[in-house]
Design a binder for these strands. Structure first.
Lengths: 195, 195
DNA sequence: TTTTTATTCGAACATATGTACTAATATATA
DNA sequence: TATATATTAGTACATATGTTCGAATAAAAA
């Protein structure tokens, strides 16, 4: 639907805004993408608008806005996992962290890692794990789980001989069979460590 | 230093940008703050610029940017560390990553980890390490170093019996004595891993 | 091939927009 | 009071900028 040139223009606009804080003029786009006619740019801008990738205000200068909802958002950091399902209750939010672009809406949150049960996977105490609570934890994934409605933990989810286990990445800990006391919270999608 | 009217104008600009995605024209500011002359607005804009609260590009339309550095910035991701000092050369930038607010200006960049020499510290291949190139690497810190002007690496910096070494976190690698072939790049301040 | 569609260009136009100049009025300062 | 400083207004100007129109060229489809 959108040609290479149009992607090129959109990218130029993005970078220009990023760099200057305001959108380029039609003629600046001309230069930026090696086109000699303003009407050619106009033509491509129309296409981009039709594709919903760009917005423009009629007759206003530099009034281009790029439709990237990819701007990064703040996601909450939960201190300890509270009992029950009131996981996202505000009382538990101990801070926020900026997290890069994602298509997901607000199904992300961060959790501070406690313990060393995943140390062999390079997940340390105090690390911040980003969890998508609406993404299913599949075999082999690292997920966050709630045990006995009280204790939160990060573990591998693994199928062993037809049964599911929470498997730590630390020889000193044993795997835990998944039963009704184990409640999945979400998949670990990212890790942030400040030093 | 700045009058009420000027604060008023600055506020109007902020809200306008927030709402529309681009800055208002001089005449739109006129309307927005109930002034009848463009030159009056011009006069106040000058004041705001002198106070360092606003930036403007000469003769460019809607080219106002408000100086609130409270927004979090994108920092470049460098693919491979290039030889010499052209570290931040644009050719090497393979992307950007959003990184939370910091007081530092633009002394941060990200580097994709290659190799497993820091595996015991939980720094994996493909992890993104955030590096502050203006922060000194002290004894015990993890830093990024350039070896022989060609190869980039992440290591501990450690003082052992009065001599400095780059120490890996992997039993399979040896420590490297620091000499003139080792060039410090910056301190590793954060780690990001996507899974 | 012919026909259609996509892309590019050039030139001209209308005006939105930043800027400069002068003057008037208010507000503060001596 | 007189003098200086801050603020507002009006007008005019130059041009930066979005827009339109027609035509040429390239690429794709029939």
């Amino acid at each position: 639907m959108v040609s290479e040139k149009q992607k090129n223009i959109l990218n130029f606009i993005n970078i220009f805004i990023e760099k200057n804080g305001f959108a380029p003029s039609v003629r600046e786009i001309c230069q930026g993408v090696s086109l000699k006619s303003t009407s050619t740019v106009q033509y491509h801008l129309e296409k981009l608008i039709q594709s919903g990738l760009l917005q423009k205000n009629y007759k206003k200068s530099r009034a281009l806005t790029v439709n990237n909802q990819l701007s990064n958002k703040k996601i909450p950091i939960l201190g300890e996992i509270a009992a029950g399902s009131l996981l996202m209750a505000e009382e538990n939010v101990i801070g926020t962290v900026n997290y890069p672009n994602t298509d997901e809406k607000s199904d992300l949150f961060a959790l501070s890692v406690s313990g060393d049960s995943m140390i062999d996977e390079g997940i340390h105490e105090k690390d911040l794990v980003i969890i998508n609570k609406n993404q299913q934890i599949k075999n082999g994934d690292i997920g966050a789980f709630l045990i006995n409605n009280s204790e939160g933990t990060i573990k591998f989810l693994k199928n062993i001989q037809g049964k599911q286990y929470l498997v730590p990445a630390n020889k000193n800990y044993d795997k835990i069979p998944v039963n009704e006391n184990i409640q999945p919270i979400g998949k670990v999608v990212s890790l942030i460590r400040d030093m």
